[in-house]
């Protein structure tokens, strides 16, 4: 039997970053990774920070996402995120520099601390090209 597929779209406010037919997709939810296959029951979930992996009919994709939502309804998975980057857009040297910059961020008050933690999680995830 042919593998069952579903529509996958990853959208940011600036562009539609991935639009494909996929057989499997795993993404970081706020409380751990979730894997999706075709015809999953409707789901609405908050995203965390990390790598989204998708097996599509055009090959495998890897995207770094940070925050946002995923909605599965009617055999269509929509990932809405304010930040998404393809794995080939990430340059590891730049990511390393970025991490150093983020680590130097001030932590004078709670707001700054929270901002630093968030940036830190993103910067670390970018380095984990895995």
């Amino acid at each position: 039997m042919a593998e069952q597929i579903f529509q996958l779209s990853v959208i940011t406010p600036d562009r539609s970053i991935l639009e494909a037919e996929a057989s499997f997709c795993a993404f970081p939810a706020h409380d751990g990774e979730i894997g999706i296959r075709a015809h999953r029951a409707p789901l609405l979930v908050k995203l965390g920070t990390g790598w989204l992996r998708a097996q599509t009919t055009e090959g495998d994709h890897r995207l770094l996402v940070d925050g946002g939502f995923a909605q599965m309804v009617g055999n269509q998975l929509s990932v809405l995120t304010e930040f998404a980057q393809r794995s080939d857009e990430i340059d590891s040297a730049r990511a390393q520099e970025n991490l150093a910059a983020v680590e130097a961020m001030p932590t004078a008050d709670e707001i700054q601390f929270a901002a630093r933690q968030r940036a830190l999680a993103r910067a670390r995830a970018a380095l984990k090209a895995g």
Binding site: H30, D31, P42, K46, F69
Partner: peptide, 12 residues
């Protein structure tokens, strides 16, 4: 749509 929510709708 009978969603499965995570976390609950209010928090989302």
């Amino acid at each position: 749509v009978d969603y499965e929510f995570s976390p609950d709708p209010k928090e989302l």
